[in-house]
Simulated assay, not measured.
Amino acid sequence: MNETKMVVDLRSDTVTRPSPGMLEAMYSAKVGDDVFGEDETVNALQNKLKHLFGMDDALFCPSGTMTNQIAIKCFTNPMDEVICDETAHVYRYEGGGIAFNSSASVRLLNGDRGRLTADLIEPQINPENIHYPKSTLVVLENTVNRGGGSFYTLDQIEPIYHLCRLKNMSLHLDGARIFNALAETNDNPKEYGRMFDGISVCLSKGLGAPVGSVLLGSTETIQKAKRIRKVLGGGWRQAGFLAAAGIYALDHHVNRLKDDHRHAKVLAEALLGLAFVKSCMPADTNIVIFELDEKHNPEEFVEKLAHHGIKCNSFGKQMIRFVTHLDINSEMIDYTLETLKKIH
């Protein structure tokens, strides 16, 4: 019999359950038909985020993949080219959506833990030539999932913004964990709204909502986005129950993100002291990615931890990922560390 002391789910920050306060907010939400623009709570969520980031309009969607793919379609035409890092979520984890939805090609760059610079991007922008796809969009990710939660500061983004303006290109932010980045940089969200043509804000990761992301952009962009969302089957009806969870998350779960970062750092520091860990990326936010030595099979390692009630994912050759979140407490971190020390 498995004598598991507790269950510690470190697979992703998407596994969180709504808190009692969030459930109450969902239960009491005022709803209407959002396709008609009549859901009060959806409208309130969209208004809250557009004002926070200083953008003209916003659109609530079921997922970050949908908001990213809508944005890419808004900012490109068939035969255009999207520039992003080779680890980017929009390229690796959205099912080939750039090709399928937008008929665009992708120029992949090798950034620093997923972070690009203007100097890296500029030489890859195609000149006007019928032999080349037209470079029309740059996509950044903040924080970077495969970069171990690495993040951009505004000072790092600013030169990319100016380059895109100079080259008449659009700039989109996959802000799946944008509030994790802001928790570390203390940057003003309105500066993001000034520099990006589109911003995808995910509510179902570190913020702990059960589902949903919001696309921010100009009035013209969001009007186009609504049509694309409809075609993709993403038109909501009484979605206010879900939007209420997003509003609650923004009001109650942003300031506590530092707790997740602290837990991640504790894990990363401890992992570096274990004999079977070959390397570990810096835990800048809430993601810990570490490399096992050659003696340990990643799949067997995951199974071994699961036997002790600790869930995690393999993340490439010899790589393991832990993600901390609001359902992980200090006792769970201590239990995980005790368990790791017993593994040989």
Results as ranks from 00 to 15, higher is better:
1 M>T: 14
1 M>I: 14
7 V>M: 14
7 V>K: 14
10 L>M: 11
10 L>H: 06
19 S>D: 11
19 S>R: 12
20 P>M: 07
24 E>N: 13
27 Y>L: 11
28 S>Y: 11
31 V>G: 02
39 D>V: 08
39 D>K: 02
40 E>K: 13
49 L>S: 01
56 D>C: 00
61 C>I: 00
73 K>L: 11
83 I>N: 05
84 C>H: 07
84 C>S: 13
86 E>K: 13
87 T>A: 11
96 G>K: 09
97 G>Q: 10
106 V>M: 11
107 R>Q: 15
110 N>K: 15
119 D>H: 07
122 E>V: 09
131 H>T: 09
131 H>P: 00
137 L>Y: 05
137 L>S: 03
141 E>N: 07
143 T>M: 11
146 R>A: 15
146 R>T: 10
159 P>W: 03
168 N>C: 02
172 H>M: 13
178 I>C: 05
179 F>E: 07
180 N>P: 00
181 A>Y: 02
183 A>H: 06
191 E>R: 10
198 G>P: 01
214 V>N: 08
215 L>A: 11
218 S>D: 08
220 E>Q: 15
225 A>W: 07
231 V>Q: 14
236 W>P: 00
237 R>G: 12
238 Q>Y: 08
241 F>H: 10
246 G>Q: 03
246 G>S: 06
248 Y>A: 03
261 H>Y: 03
266 V>L: 14
270 A>D: 14
272 L>F: 02
272 L>W: 01
275 A>P: 03
275 A>E: 12
276 F>A: 08
279 S>C: 02
288 V>M: 06
291 E>I: 07
296 H>W: 12
300 E>G: 11
303 E>P: 00
307 H>G: 02
312 C>Q: 04
323 V>G: 00
326 L>H: 07
328 I>G: 03
343 I>S: 01
344 H>F: 00
344 H>L: 02
